[in-house]
């Protein structure tokens, strides 16, 4: 009985010693990756480095600006169209001769 338990303990210890470095090799490159569940196995090389599945994306982004139709809705004037105008109430109306010096514009949408 003692022999059986000793052998079992020895094989368990030996298995653990062999398995732990392997598990560590698999998990380390994926730490912090938001795409782990989808692409980590394909993106991980045997030496532990991570391949960018779509590395071209970052290169393309470097050449873009906030003028894209789907982006930059909150941009504050970085595109070729010039800065966005100051909203009503934040500055005085332009001195174009059309306005008096009285009340600020008031707007209402129904």
């Amino acid at each position: 009985m003692k022999t059986t338990i000793a052998v079992l303990a020895a094989t368990t210890a030996l298995g653990a010693i062999i398995a732990i470095p392997g598990i560590a090799m698999i998990r380390t490159p994926d730490a912090g990756s938001p795409r782990t569940s989808f692409s980590a196995p394909a993106d991980t090389m045997q030496d532990g480095t991570v391949l960018l599945a779509s590395g071209d994306d970052e290169d393309n982004d470097e050449g873009t600006n906030d003028c894209d139709e789907d982006e930059g809705d909150d941009d504050a004037g970085t595109c070729a169209a010039g800065p966005n105008p100051a909203p009503a109430g934040t500055v005085a109306p332009p001195a174009n001769g059309l306005f008096g010096n009285g009340a600020a514009p008031q707007v209402q949408v129904n």
Partner: peptide, 18 residues
Amino acid sequence: GITGASVGAGRALSITLD
């Protein structure tokens, strides 16, 4: 200083200016 939001379809924009 004379810019506001765009106006939705079917809506009425009322501006009071001096």
